[in-house]
Computed example of a mutant assay.
Amino acid sequence: MTTPNSAESVYDAIGGDATFDKLVAGFYAQVPDDDILAPMYPKDDMEGAHNRLKWFLAQYWGGPQEFSENRGRPALRMRHAHFHVDRAAALRWLELMNNSLAQIDEETIPPAYRHMLTDHFERVAGMLVNQPD
């Protein structure tokens, strides 16, 4: 079993593309029925949204540089500036990401890595808030 202290990237340690694809697919399976997040996502480009989030997360955790190759630098605050992201939206995004993470077994994503991911999700969600409560 790999640990967070090994030289292997988190991306590789938790199963690479297959795991990140499953994580993002689980998130987007919840979005269409969500009263807060669904209006923010283009119904005709859910596959594109899926790819962009997967590329971002995979790249952040040591995987392929697909996000940068396809979209340039992440610049998350700028990319989300035109969306109304208040605390409720950030918390809902976090809830759906954590729901998806919970669907992936601990053999694939052991607790130490799970904690790293949830900590990152919390920081990203908070950083993207651009509207007052």
Results as ranks from 00 to 15, higher is better:
132 P>V: 07
106 E>Q: 12
3 T>R: 15
42 P>Y: 11
114 R>K: 12
62 G>C: 02
42 P>C: 00
82 H>M: 14
69 E>I: 13
89 A>R: 14
73 R>G: 08
127 M>E: 10
27 F>N: 07
47 E>R: 10
62 G>Y: 01
8 E>M: 12
14 I>R: 01
117 L>M: 12
49 A>F: 03
81 A>R: 13
74 P>C: 06
37 L>Q: 05
109 I>D: 08
122 E>C: 09
58 A>F: 03
20 F>G: 02
120 H>T: 14
85 V>R: 00
8 E>Q: 14
101 L>V: 09
71 R>C: 09
101 L>I: 07
19 T>N: 02
67 F>Y: 15
60 Y>D: 05
94 L>M: 13
112 A>N: 05
85 V>K: 00
25 A>P: 00
49 A>G: 03
116 M>Y: 08
81 A>C: 04
111 P>L: 07
21 D>P: 01
26 G>E: 09
116 M>G: 10
118 T>E: 15
81 A>N: 03
66 E>Q: 15
23 L>N: 01
120 H>M: 05
44 D>A: 11
117 L>E: 03
119 D>Q: 13
40 M>D: 05
48 G>Q: 11
85 V>S: 01
68 S>C: 08
122 E>Y: 10
66 E>L: 15
106 E>R: 11
34 D>R: 02
24 V>T: 14
42 P>G: 12
35 D>Y: 04
89 A>M: 10
26 G>C: 04
34 D>Q: 03
51 N>A: 13
98 N>E: 14
4 P>W: 09
79 R>T: 07
35 D>M: 11
11 Y>D: 09
65 Q>S: 12
132 P>S: 11
40 M>G: 06
79 R>D: 04
82 H>V: 14
59 Q>Y: 09
74 P>R: 10
103 Q>A: 14
120 H>K: 14
12 D>G: 13
89 A>T: 13
43 K>C: 00
9 S>Q: 04
106 E>G: 12
7 A>C: 04
24 V>I: 13
74 P>L: 10
45 D>I: 04
87 R>K: 15
117 L>V: 01
11 Y>M: 07
42 P>F: 13
31 V>Q: 09
25 A>S: 13
48 G>C: 10
78 M>F: 14
107 E>C: 03
29 A>R: 13
97 M>G: 02
36 I>K: 08
102 A>K: 13
100 S>A: 09
107 E>T: 13
16 G>K: 00
5 N>V: 08
128 L>D: 08
4 P>V: 15
124 V>Q: 03
30 Q>M: 10
56 F>G: 00
111 P>M: 07
9 S>P: 01
98 N>Q: 14
53 L>I: 11
79 R>M: 10
54 K>C: 09
42 P>D: 11
7 A>N: 14
50 H>M: 10
57 L>I: 06
94 L>Q: 14
66 E>C: 08
32 P>L: 06
91 L>C: 03
84 H>P: 02
109 I>W: 05
99 N>H: 15
96 L>V: 12
64 P>E: 14
